[in-house]
């Protein structure tokens, strides 16, 4: 049997003085933004909480914790997912990219530049999710994936209607939607998503 637990990741258990039960806790190796983190986690810990509370990457936000808003969107092996419904133990083995890992040090990615230039946010709380979602969405589009508004039998063409449908899993209460759509289209027009 291939149990997931990795003996190579030796982490001191009993952190914070809590007795760790082998059945309900795991040692995992979490790959985040190119860095490997050895963590001992409660199996209940979601990827979102592991990123925020254990790895210290608080750029990923908790808006609903139930997959209903998209604020916690990250990329797992390049695909966008909601980190609130993914268990940290289930994310082991995947390359996780958060908003902190999108750009290099200093320079913003084209998508980030367009969000700033076109004012694609107000409060900014949904922004990291919107940006991660946009990066994943543009990759999906590049692979030819259709959406609910793509006419059956035809190939999708990325216009505002397509962007709106594909980004609908990211709610924004400030109402920055039109600017976000413009930022995504401008980024796509620049032909470079991640720089």
């Amino acid at each position: 049997m291939a149990f997931h637990r990795l003996s190579t990741c030796a982490v001191a258990l009993g952190e914070k003085g809590v007795a760790l039960n082998e059945d309900t806790h795991s040692e995992i190796l979490l790959h985040v933004n190119g860095v490997k983190h050895c963590l001992s986690v409660d199996n209940r810990t979601t990827l979102l909480d592991a990123l925020r509370e254990r790895v210290g990457h608080t750029g990923t936000k908790k808006g609903c914790d139930h997959g209903q808003c998209g604020a916690c969107t990250v990329l797992c092996d390049g695909r966008r997912v909601v980190s609130c419904l993914m268990l940290a133990v289930a994310a082991e083995g995947a390359e996780v990219t958060t908003v902190e890992g999108l750009g290099g040090d200093g320079e913003l990615l084209p998508i980030q530049q367009e969000f700033v230039r076109l004012d694609g946010f107000q409060c900014g709380y949904c922004t990291s999710g919107q940006i991660c979602s946009a990066v994943g969405m543009l990759a999906e589009y590049a692979e030819g994936w259709p959406s609910a508004v793509t006419a059956p039998g035809s190939e999708p063409v990325l216009d505002a209607v397509e962007v709106r449908e594909r980004m609908s899993g990211n709610l924004c209460r400030c109402g920055a939607y039109p600017s976000i759509v413009r930022a995504v289209l401008e980024t796509a027009a620049r032909g470079e998503v991640t720089g």
């Binding site: 997959g67 969107t73 797992c76 994943g136 969405m137 999906e140 609910a148 059956p152 899993g169």
Partner: peptide
């Protein structure tokens, strides 16, 4: 095509990836 459409009508891009 109705199957593709039905799947795409459900949830969000993120959730469909999972």
């Amino acid at each position: 095509p109705a199957l593709s459409q039905a799947v795409l009508a459900g949830a969000s891009g993120q959730l469909r990836n999972m």
